[in-house]
Measured scan of single mutants.
Amino acid sequence: QAPETKIVDKSRVACDGGEGALGHPRVWLQIPEDTGWVECPYCDCKYVLKGSKADAL
């Protein structure tokens, strides 16, 4: 199944896999201003900063 994409309001987000005990260790991710998105290294969930150029795609 394809990784999930989430639109977020802040450039710093936490990801834990979203499945409680079945998820992964919580990691904090920083969305770079130049790209407007970041992917979780564990679950490949893509976080897109709302209003960024990546959000316009």
Rank of each mutant, 00 (worst) to 15 (best):
V13T: 01
E39C: 05
R26V: 12
Y47S: 05
D34Q: 09
W28T: 01
W37V: 05
A2H: 14
V48G: 00
E33H: 10
P25L: 08
G23N: 13
K53D: 09
A14C: 12
P32A: 07
K10Q: 12
K53G: 10
L49W: 01
L57S: 14
Q1R: 14
V38S: 01
R12F: 14
D34W: 06
C15L: 00
A56E: 13
C45H: 15
G17V: 03
C15I: 00
K46N: 04
C45Q: 15
Y42Q: 11
C40L: 08
T35S: 09
P32K: 04
T5W: 15
C43K: 00
G23R: 14
G20S: 06
L29G: 01
G36E: 01
G51R: 00
G36T: 03
V27H: 02
Y47R: 00
D9L: 11
C15P: 00
P25E: 12
A2I: 10
D55I: 01
S52P: 02
E39N: 11
P25T: 08
D55A: 03
D55R: 00
I31M: 00
L29S: 00
C15S: 00
V8G: 01
L29T: 02
W37A: 04
D9I: 07
Q1W: 14
W37C: 01
S11F: 08
A14F: 14
D9F: 12
D34E: 10
P41Q: 06
I7S: 04
G23L: 05
L29Y: 02
Y42K: 14
A21K: 11
E33C: 11
A14Q: 08
E4V: 14
D44I: 11
I7P: 06
W28S: 01
L49N: 07
Y47T: 03
W28I: 04
K6P: 05
L49R: 03
P3W: 12
G17R: 00
L22K: 13
K46P: 01
Q30I: 13
R12W: 14
S52L: 05
D55Y: 00
V8D: 07
I31W: 01
D9A: 08
L22T: 10
Q1S: 14
L22E: 12
P32T: 04
D16P: 03
D9S: 11
V27N: 01
Q1H: 15
G36Q: 05
G20C: 06
H24Y: 04
I7W: 08
G18T: 08
C15V: 00
S11C: 09
K50D: 09
S11W: 07
G23C: 01
Q30C: 10
V27I: 11
D9K: 01
I31F: 02
K46F: 07
D34T: 03
D55P: 03
I7Y: 13
T5C: 15
W37H: 00
T5M: 13
L49I: 06
G51F: 03
K6N: 12
E39T: 09
T35R: 07
K6H: 15
H24F: 03
G20Q: 03
G18D: 05
G18N: 07
G17S: 02
V8I: 06
L57T: 13
I7L: 12
D16Q: 09
V8S: 05
V27A: 01
W37F: 13
Y47D: 08
W28M: 07
V13C: 08
C40R: 03
D16Y: 11
G51V: 04
G18C: 15
V38E: 02
A54S: 07
D55S: 00
A54G: 08
C40P: 06
